[in-house]
Structure formats: structure tokens, C-alpha cells
């Protein structure tokens, strides 16, 4: 029973990480109509920026996380306004440039930092225990930070004018533009917000999980899984799906072992696609 609870806690903290990634991903899709293949790249690069600032430059870890977040937001802003914006009308072209950018980012990391995983330990060690339940402090801090960020995103999306504009655009772009919303001006902002979140998540999570140039691949695959499960463009759907993914992964790793967790998830996704193609909370699928 204790290990069941402890595994659940790990699942929830994994879920909160996936939520941050999936929220960014789904915001970009909802607002810009773009599937961001570079999302995993911002996550990894965020991790490396934090590593460089914290381990090489010796800055305090929280500062390193902030810098990772800001630099990835800035990079996302530049990429959106210099490259993505030019092809934003053509969904296939947006796919190509984000994919190309991911390849460039991954290769750049490889050239600068090498293929070896760097030593990037989480600054806080130790384990919290209550009876037989164990939960590392590192995971607890990451969980707290992720939950705070999730609350922030929800506040932004549901309680501010910017968020209302973004939601209106994700629901009906022509109507939102007709109502005079400055749609284009929100594009780089929304993109930067999402990539900043990805960078921050990378900075928080890579010390616990792994930091290597190629970890973006699996991050991308899990983001895809989450948004397929939750329904593309649905903020709440992404959140629910991310926690489901996190919990299944944690329990499957403990009780099934190996990569069976991932297979379970894939099976779940296939079932969802048959039963509810629009995802758990997605709206009716319309023909594109």
C-alpha cells in the first residue's frame, strides 16, 4: 500500500511535468494552428542552459531555471517572428520549419556539449518519509514549481485579456480577427510563453530524469501522446491527459517493468482514437 501511494506521488509529479509541456504544445496548436515539432528541443536546450548557468557558471539553481525559461522564451519569440511567421498560413510548411529547427537545435547542443550526459545533479537531496511512504525532496520541489506554473497558465488563459484573446483565437480565428483582436501580435507572445514553459520544465526536470542531447525525442513523443489523449487544442484535456499519462507510466514502471508502461499508453491512445477520436475533452472533430 505504501509503495502504491509513493508510486502515485511519482506519477503525479511526472504528470505535472507533462502538463507543462502539453500546455505549451496545445497553446501553440490552439492559437497558431501549428504542431510544434521543436517543442522537445526547447525542453532539452532549457535543461542545458540551466546546467551551464548552474554547474559551469556557478549561479544559484533558481536563477539558472529562470534564465533557462527566459532564454527559451526569447528564442521562441525570435523563431516565431523570423521564420515561422513567414509560413504560418501553410500547415505543412509550419511542420517542416519546426521540425528543421528541432534538428538544428539538437545538433547545436551536440556540437557544444558533446554526446555525453553531463553531471547535473538537483541541488536539494534527501527523502521525505511518512511511515513507509518515500518521496524525494527534489521531486517535491519540482512538483510544487510545476503546479505553480500550471496555476499561472490557467490564470493567464482564463482570467486575463490576453488569455481571453488567445482562447477566442483558438476557437475561431476568423471571428476573433473580425472582432478586432490583434491576432498576429499574440502569435509570438503565445509561442514564447509555450517555449519558455518548455525551457523551464527542462531546467527543472532534467536534473532528476536525464540530460542528454537526444532526450527531446521522447519528450516530443510524450507530448504527442498527451495531446492526442486530451484532444488537440484543449487546455483542460491536456492537463487531465498529462496526469493520466504520468500515473500510468509510474505504475507500469513499478508493476509491469521495462517499456511496458509506454506500450500500455500507446494501447490506450489507440483505444481512444477508436472510441473518441477528438480526444478525452476535445471538441467535435471537424474536417480540416
Amino acid at each position: 500500500m505504501d509503495s502504491f501511494i509513493a508510486t502515485g506521488l511519482i506519477g503525479i509529479s511526472l504528470g505535472s511535468q507533462y502538463t507543462l509541456l502539453a500546455l505549451g504544445f496545445t497553446l501553440i496548436f490552439g492559437i497558431l494552428g501549428v504542431v510544434n515539432f521543436a517543442h522537445g528541443g526547447f525542453y532539452v536546450m532549457g535543461g542545458y542552459v540551466a546546467y551551464y548557468c548552474n554547474v559551469i557558471l556557478g549561479l544559484p539553481y533558481p536563477v539558472a531555471v529562470m534564465l533557462a525559461m527566459l532564454s527559451m522564451a526569447a528564442l521562441g519569440w525570435l523563431f516565431e517572428s523570423l521564420i515561422l511567421e513567414r509560413v504560418i498560413e501553410d500547415h505543412q510548411a509550419t511542420l517542416m520549419v519546426t521540425m528543421g529547427f528541432y534538428l538544428v537545435m539538437a545538433t547545436a547542443i551536440l556540437m557544444i556539449f558533446g554526446a555525453e550526459s553531463p553531471q547535473f545533479p538537483f541541488p536539494v537531496t534527501g527523502v521525505w518519509r511518512l511511515g513507509g511512504i518515500y518521496f524525494p525532496y527534489a521531486n517535491m520541489i519540482v512538483l510544487g514549481a510545476c503546479l505553480a506554473a500550471i496555476v499561472f497558465v490557467y490564470w493567464l488563459v482564463y482570467r486575463t485579456n490576453i488569455g481571453r484573446g488567445m482562447r477566442a483565437m483558438s476557437e475561431d480565428l476568423p471571428v476573433a480577427s473580425a472582432l478586432g483582436m490583434r491576432t498576429k501580435a499574440l502569435f509570438p507572445f503565445a509561442f514564447a510563453l509555450a517555449t519558455g514553459l518548455a525551457g523551464g520544465t527542462g531546467a527543472l526536470v532534467t536534473p532528476i530524469l536525464a540530460l542528454a542531447p537526444h532526450v527531446g525525442d521522447s519528450v516530443l513523443a510524450f507530448s504527442f501522446l498527451t495531446v492526442i489523449l486530451g484532444g488537440l487544442g484543449s487546455v483542460t484535456g491536456a492537463t487531465c491527459a498529462a496526469f493520466i499519462v504520468g500515473l500510468i507510466e509510474a505504475y507500469a514502471a513499478v508493476y509491469l517493468g521495462g517499456s511496458k508502461g509506454a506500450l500500455t499508453l500507446f494501447a490506450l491512445v489507440l483505444i481512444i482514437l477508436v472510441v473518441r477520436p477528438q480526444g478525452l475533452l476535445g471538441r467535435e472533430v471537424r474536417r480540416s
Binding site: 520549419v97 528543421g100 534538428l103 538544428v104 539538437a106 547545436a108
Partner: peptide
């Protein structure tokens, strides 16, 4: 991969 990425863009 980096070369391919650049070419794609």
C-alpha cells in the same frame, strides 16, 4: 541531422 534541418528550413 543539423544539415538536414537547415536544408528543410
Amino acid at each position: 541531422p543539423g544539415l538536414f534541418g537547415l536544408l528543410i528550413i
